[in-house]
């Protein structure tokens, strides 16, 4: 069965290209356009992994990650930060803020695929 990924992203161009990438990598994609939707969809869909943009209006990615980590139902879902915040220290901020891994925009399907696979592998090892 295809693994399900929740893509959290507000930029239409990025939704388009990252959506295609995830599709080619063999994942089923659900979309949330901001942090509030992300928290709700994480709880109702229980995806295998969340690809989280950080800079978003209304509720940003780190606020959303914090909420997702609080809910016992969603707290173990791996979160991959995929963001244009790429100053030194931003990776650490994302990891401290509840994300499990981090990639900086721009990325290609190769980097995205490797990061997702790494997290999913980790998770299945943890649940053994």
């Amino acid at each position: 069965m295809k693994k399900r990924i929740l893509l959290v992203e507000d930029d239409p161009g990025t939704i388009d290209v990252v959506g295609k990438e995830l599709e080619f990598l063999g994942y089923e994609v659900t979309l949330a356009k901001n942090g509030i939707e992300a928290v709700a969809l994480a709880a109702s869909e229980l995806p295998d992994l969340i690809v989280m943009d950080i800079l978003m209006p209304s509720m940003d990615g780190l606020q959303a990650a914090a909420q997702i980590r609080k809910d016992p139902k969603t707290k173990d879902i791996p979160i991959l930060a995929a963001t244009a915040r790429a100053m030194p220290g931003d990776r650490e901020k994302c990891l401290k803020g509840g994300c499990d891994d981090y990639i900086a925009k721009p990325f290609t399907h190769t980097e995205l695929g490797a990061a997702i696979e790494g997290l999913l592998k980790n998770r299945s090892r943890r649940s053994l």
Binding site: G13, V17, A84, M87, A104, K105, P106, F107
Partner: peptide, 27 residues
């Protein structure tokens, strides 16, 4: 300003590089 510039400069490149890589890999 720096955060916004980072987003404005990097986001379009994500489309450029993402699609270029997919086309190049014959996807």
């Amino acid at each position: 300003f720096l955060t916004i510039m980072s987003r404005e400069l990097r986001t379009p490149l994500n489309t450029v590089m993402g699609y270029t890589a997919m086309i190049k890999e014959k996807l």
